[in-house]
Write a protein that binds this DNA or RNA. Structure first.
Length: 760
DNA sequence: CTCCTACGCCTTTTT
DNA sequence: GGCGTAGGAG
């Protein structure tokens, strides 16, 4: 059973078998990092270490899940009891258990980014602060970095230097907002993503009931994946668990400074340097052999990253042979870029017998996916877009979840604000604002205030409306003990009127929303019926609270099924840790990659370069890089120079698909290079007038639904709302056909024929 | 209170 | 190009 060690090279084996004391593994791309991590855990288990005393922290659920799966193929079922999960989910689990120690309810809500922003904008508005001076995004990231640096609102206010800086920045009230934000979250029984880390630290630091020792005794072996992406706060938590009198300090960190791409959310390479200082007896293993890519790719990666300043010395090498050169595609427009990438994909598929799932398109920003989606669709290539809005962030989903959150934790203010007047109950903005202010003054939650609405002096109409709402929620709550999560969710969705409202919208988008809502309910049913671990194994608990917990930290990528064969489209960030036989890195233009947001300092630029390094090292056999000389951005055509990163790859590793000169970077075919300060308004697309539609207008009876069989492509029709148009296509299952219609005003719409009102 | 329109904003990456 | 919000009318 110890033959699993045979599949490792010398250094890997040492990293796996050195289990006592601090260990640092510097793992280049494709060097078998996950292997080392999983075999190390397997090895611990083989040595008789109980699985529940092993804590493995990762950054994504996916990484954690994969790790567990791979451990179980080596050691079987024991793997299930290993504590492997993301920082956020593991800490959430502990915090729920220890909630009383930090003055939170055990069923606390986790606020996502939307929720946090909404809390902040409410605070800013209610305090009559200028939302331009106090931008929600700016404030949020400042609060975030306060938490990362363990600066409490109190510590902030007590520090004259911070206050001075705020005055200079013209944001003297920041400290007030920070304090109010924390207070509101607490009153709502809610934690944001950062709180899960922050409160975990507080718990260990203040150590009520000696709780810290409990977890120190429990977790005898600690492993941290992607250590280069940890921030100060995360590292301090690790230290709390590992650095104590008499601790064996069994901590193993795995990472690669060259792949650090999360500085924007507080990650710092300083942690790696500090680690070596804090643990002088640390054993360091460098994994430098790349088992993933051919040498043109590895050489290019080495060349690119050598342009960065500070880094841990290492030389990544491969024995996979030269392989193909890196192909460069130059396009005139973003549309053409999409088309040529799709062409290239088709060619690779036929020539090298690649499947769709062997191929990935990686971009710097999610917004770039569009042109590729379009061209892939036209080429009939299956694809899947990862990232962007996750399922659980969609409005219709959050609306239903809002009701569910209210049932579990009615103090959850964001949930309350979301659903108190949706569907409409005649509780308007002014009323909600009043409720919020009064709750603030009384220092109670909005829910508690609503329960006592008769004492507030609000006028009769809103008072009664609020009473009705309170009754509705209380009725759901009362059924918590008798109904399971699915029954409860179904009931809430129906009786709140949400489902009915969704069902009334017969547009394609509306039907989609309805489908999503059904999908959510189905998901809850599956959750209830299943005995499987869901994300964060909350063993056996199938309650609504357990369901909400299980989905709070899920992202889009955790809900995908990878069964069908599709090309992968995702951001470079999302691609970290993945590999594909063929990778397209697209949009290699100045101001896009590197991003215009990150060109101010060398540090930022270095991070962009590491990001590019991550991108190209995802490729096993084929790497294609593309760029477009012009592209639509922010609604305008912009002309861009070729990315500087392209110049950092030696020509011997590249093959040009189009005539391309290294000096071509400065070519200015359109008379301008960077676009800075140039007015491109004349290139801007004409503004489309949005047609609006009043549902109360009676419809001319001549306009009616027409059976799909009587229609054909190319036919002219007149829609009662959108006017004249031409049918471009008819698709969909019998009875549910929809037509794509190009209207004469230039717009294109997909319309479900069953509900369409038009005439031929 | 609700609906509608116009405008102004912003636009990186994610747990 | 898309979104959320502010401001106006019913």
């Amino acid at each position: 059973m110890s033959d699993y060690l045979d599949g490792l090279n010398d250094i890997q084996r040492q990293a796996v078998t050195t289990i006592e004391g601090p260990v640092m593994v510097i793992a280049g791309p494709g060097s078998g990092k996950t292997r080392v991590l999983t075999y190390r855990i397997a090895h611990l288990l083989e040595k008789g270490i109980p699985p529940w005393s092993i804590l493995a922290l990762t950054f994504t659920n996916k990484a954690a899940r994969e790790m567990k799966e791979r451990i179980s193929t080596v050691v079987g079922d024991r793997a299930r009891s290993v504590w492997a999960g993301t920082f956020h989910s593991i800490f959430a689990r502990i915090l729920r258990y220890e909630a009383e120690h930090i003055g939170y309810p055990g069923n606390f809500t986790i606020y996502d980014t939307q929720d946090s922003k909404s809390v902040l904008s409410n605070i800013i508005r209610e305090n009559n602060l200028d939302s331009k001076v106090y931008s929600v995004n700016g404030i949020r990231s400042r609060i975030s970095s306060c938490k990362y640096n363990l600066i409490s609102p109190k510590a902030y206010i007590d520090n004259p230097q911070y206050l001075q800086e705020d005055r200079e920045r013209k944001q003297p009230h920041f400290q007030k907002i920070y304090k109010a934000y924390m207070a509101r979250c607490r009153r709502a029984g809610a934690m944001d993503f950062d709180d899960l880390l922050y409160q975990m630290f507080i718990l260990l630091h203040k150590n009520p009931g000696n709780v810290a020792q409990k977890y120190r005794d429990k977790f005898k072996y600690l492993m941290v994946d992607e250590f280069q992406d940890t921030n100060y706060l995360q590292y301090q938590i690790i230290r709390k668990l590992v650095n104590w009198e008499g601790s064996p300090r069994n901590v193993c960190i795995v990472g690669d400074d060259a792949q650090s791409i999360y500085a924007f959310r507080g990650a710092t390479i300083q942690n790696i340097l500090d680690f070596q200082e804090n643990y002088p007896n640390v054993k360091v293993f460098k994994l430098e052999q790349n088992y993933r890519s051919t040498s043109h790719i590895v050489e290019a990666a080495n060349d690119v990253i050598s342009n960065n300043r500070r880094q841990i010395q290492k030389k990544i090498w491969t024995d996979k042979g030269e392989g193909d050169q890196i192909k460069v595609i130059q396009a005139v427009t973003d549309t053409e870029e999409g088309k040529r990438v799709a062409d290239q994909i088709l060619e690779q598929k036929t020539r090298y017998h690649l499947q769709n799932k062997d191929i990935a398109i990686l971009y710097r920003t999610n917004a770039q996916s569009r042109s590729f989606e379009e061209s892939l669709r036209q080429h009939n290539i299956r694809y899947k877009v990862f990232g962007g809005l996750s399922f659980y962030q969609r409005k219709e989903i959050k609306d239903i979840l809002g009701y569910l959150r209210m049932i579990v934790n009615p103090n959850d203010e964001e949930a309350l604000r979301r659903v108190i007047n949706y569907p409409k109950r005649a509780i308007g903005k002014t009323t909600i604002d009043k409720v919020s202010r009064m709750a603030d003054q009384a220092n109670i939650s909005m829910w508690d205030l609503c329960k006592n609405v008769h004492q507030t002096g609000l006028s009769a109409r809103p008072t009664n409306a609020i009473k009705g709402f309170v009754k509705l929620i209380e009725r759901f709550q009362a059924m918590q003990s008798t109904k399971d999560a699915y029954e409860l969710a179904m009931l809430a969705a129906k009786e709140s009127g949400l489902l009915k409202l969704l069902g009334e919208d017969k547009t394609i988008e509306g039907m989609n929303r309805m489908e999503n809502a059904q999908g959510l309910l189905d998901g809850i049913k599956i959750f209830v019926d299943s005995d499987e671990d869901f994300g964060e194994d909350i063993e056996g608990d199938r309650s609504l609270a357990a369901y909400l917990q299980s989905i709070a930290l899920l992202t889009d990528q955790d809900t995908q099924d990878d069964t069908d064969d599709h090309v992968t489209l995702m951001s470079v960030h999302a691609a970290k840790g993945l590999e594909f036989p063929s990778v397209f890195v697209v949009g290699l233009e100045e101001d896009l990659f590197p991003s215009f947001m990150s060109k101010n300092t060398t540090d930022e630029l270095d991070e962009e370069r590491r990001l590019f390094y991550v991108a190209i090292t995802r490729a096993e056999r084929f790497l294609t890089i593309s760029y477009a000389k012009s592209r639509y951005r922010f609604g305008q055509i912009r002309y861009n120079e070729t990315s500087r990163f392209l110049d950092e790859i030696a020509t011997r590793n590249m093959a040009m698909s189009t005539p391309f000169s290294k000096s071509g970077r400065s070519a200015q075919p359109y008379g301008s290079s960077s676009g800075k300060g140039v007015n491109y308004a004349k290139y801007a697309a004409p503004k489309k007038k949005k047609k609006t539609y009043n549902p109360n207008t009676p419809v001319d009876p001549r306009f009616k639904a027409i059976n799909a069989k009587e229609l054909s492509v190319g036919q002219q029709i007149e829609h009662f709302r959108f006017g004249n148009g031409t049918i471009k296509s008819i698709e969909g299952a019998t009875g549910n056909e929809f037509a794509t219609i190009k209207f004469d005003d230039g717009g294109e719409k997909r319309i479900v024929l069953r509900f369409a009102k038009f005439k031929v």
